[in-house]
Every structure is written in structure tokens, then in C-alpha cells.
């Protein structure tokens, strides 16, 4: 009944959904690198990144609004960073009141960067189920087994945590209501008072989490869980032509941005040379 739009999986059978989770995670990371590579004020690079996200969204068949909604949750953070830039950046010439042209450009730059990163990240979680995501991370972390890192256990913990988030949200809601019915007040008073008011919620939540963990452990034991040694996997990740295409596209994006950066750098070098 709750509206949790950020990071919730949008089931579909699209090209992007069918991609290997490992490839998708790698592509998402590469994409974020690309966003960070766009050098200051060269918005053409951002346009290329935006085009990539739009393309990926179209191919994934996730409605644009769903993807855009993810931005809503961090809008405060974005606006806050932009305002900092607007009012406190003293470089450049003043265009209006205390606002400088460099401040304006920086604000725009920050907004574009954060938004593009959030859009990319949410597209990943919208097209990849938590289980696949955990499997993907496990797959990518596999080399760490060489240094005895418990990759399988780590991934299992992660997927169980993901599975229990909605359950615990419901539980918190129930406990809050029960304590409110006993007159608990979570809305008034200073920050210390409010923190103290949370004790009657946190303690029952903690206790119930332990109880759940106990029961879950019994349930897992009952289903013959014995660690990773002899386990098989029902869903095997497979690198296919889809993943190859994805990797090629994101590689193209990075090359393009690097090229643009170089082009601008050369241009400014040429300008300097001309001036000399």
C-alpha cells in the first residue's frame, strides 16, 4: 500500500531486463564514470549521457515517469547543492544580485550530474530484480574468493536484507501505530525528545528482528542450507549478445566524451597558441 518508487523493480521482458546482471552493473558503473568524465561546462557530454539514458529507458520499456520519479526522492539534495553554488560561488562576474555566471554554470552542472547519475542508477534497479542484483554483485566479486572473502555469504545476506525491507517497513508502521495509540508523540519537542520518543519503536523492532532472524535460520536449516560448497544455481547468469551490445554502447559513450574533452582541450590549447 506504500508508494516506494525509488529502486523498486519494474517487471518486464525487455531487452534490458534480459541482460546479464553483471553486465548491467558494469555498464551502470561505466556510465557513471562517463558522467563524471564530462569536463566542466561542456554540456554536449551531458547531452550524450542523457541520450544514453533515454535510449536505455526506451529499450527497457519502463515508463519514463517511473524513471523520473526516482529523482523526486533526492530533489531536496539537488536543490540544496545548486543553491550553495548559486549563492556562495564568488568566481566570475556578477549577473544578478550575488549570483555570478560561474555560480550559475556550476549550479547547472551539479544538477545535471546528480540527476543523470540517479536516473542511471534507478534504471538499473528498475530493470534488475534485487535477487539478480545480488547475484550480479556476487558474480563480479567472485575474484575476491582468492583472498578468502566470503562472496557467497555476502551476496546471500544482501538478498535477504532486500527481501526483508518491505516486511520491516510494515512492522515499523504497526509498532508506531500501537505506541501512538498509547499516547506516544513522535512529532513534537526538540531533537533529543524526539530521539527518546523513538525508543518504544526501536526496541520492539529490534526484538522482532532477532525473532525473525532466528526463525529464518531455522527455515533455512530445514531446507538443507549448508553454505556454498555443494550448491547449484537455478538462475545462471549468462553473458549474451545483448550484453555485448550494451557494453559497446557504453564504451562508445565514454570514448565520445573523452574525445569531446580532448577536442575542447585542443581547442583551448590552440586558442592559447594563437594568442601567443
Amino acid at each position: 500500500m506504500r508508494d516506494v518508487s525509488f529502486g523498486s523493480y519494474f517487471p518486464s521482458n525487455s531487452f534490458v531486463h534480459k541482460m546479464d546482471a553483471r553486465a548491467k552493473i558494469l555498464i551502470a558503473i561505466a556510465y557513471m564514470v562517463a558522467v563524471f568524465l564530462v569536463s566542466a561546462f561542456h554540456f554536449l557530454g551531458f547531452a550524450a549521457c542523457l541520450l544514453f539514458v533515454i535510449l536505455a529507458t526506451v529499450v527497457s520499456k519502463v515508463p519514463f515517469l517511473r524513471v523520473l520519479k526516482s529523482v523526486r526522492t533526492i530533489i531536496f539534495f539537488v536543490v540544496f547543492s545548486a543553491i550553495l553554488q548559486l549563492f556562495f560561488n564568488k568566481k566570475g562576474t556578477v549577473v544578478f544580485w550575488v549570483i555570478t555566471d560561474v555560480g550559475l554554470l556550476n549550479a547547472g552542472f551539479i544538477i545535471a550530474r546528480i540527476m543523470l547519475i540517479v536516473l542511471g542508477a534507478s534504471l538499473l534497479t528498475l530493470t534488475t530484480s534485487p535477487v539478480e542484483l545480488a547475484d550480479g554483485i556476487e558474480g563480479l566479486l567472485c575474484p575476491l574468493k582468492w583472498i578468502k572473502f566470503p562472496v557467497h555469504e555476502f551476496a546471500l545476506i544482501m538478498s535477504i536484507a532486500l527481501r526483508f525491507i518491505p516486511t520491516l517497513i510494515d512492522e515499523t508502521d504497526r509498532i508506531i501505530k500501537a505506541q501512538k495509540a498509547r499516547g506516544a508523540d513522535f512529532e513534537s519537542g526538540n531533537i533529543f525528545k524526539r530521539a527518546k520518543a523513538l525508543i518504544p519503536v526501536l526496541i520492539p523492532l529490534l526484538i522482532s528482528s532477532f525473532r525473525r532472524a532466528d526463525e529464518l535460520a531455522d527455515a533455512m536449516d530445514s531446507r538443507c542450507y549448508a553454505g556454498s560448497k555443494t550448491r547449484t544455481r537455478y538462475k545462471k547468469l549468462r553473458f549474451t549478445f545483448r550484453d555485448l551490445i550494451g557494453v559497446l554502447v557504453v564504451a562508445g559513450l565514454i570514448v565520445g566524451i573523452v574525445y569531446l574533452n580532448g577536442f575542447y582541450a585542443l581547442n583551448s590549447l590552440a586558442e592559447i597558441a594563437g594568442a601567443l
Binding site: V131, L162, R223, C224, T230, Y234, K235
Partner: peptide, 18 residues
């Protein structure tokens, strides 16, 4: 407290996988 995966078929697969 006994379902470990977020998708039904993955959960049912858990035992046989083990």
C-alpha cells in the same frame, strides 16, 4: 520469516539449490 527470496520461483529453488 521463512521466505528468503524476493521472487517466488527463486525462493522455491533455494532448497534444491542447497
Amino acid at each position: 520469516n521463512q521466505l528468503i527470496a524476493s521472487i517466488v520461483e527463486d525462493d522455491i529453488a533455494f532448497g534444491p539449490e542447497n
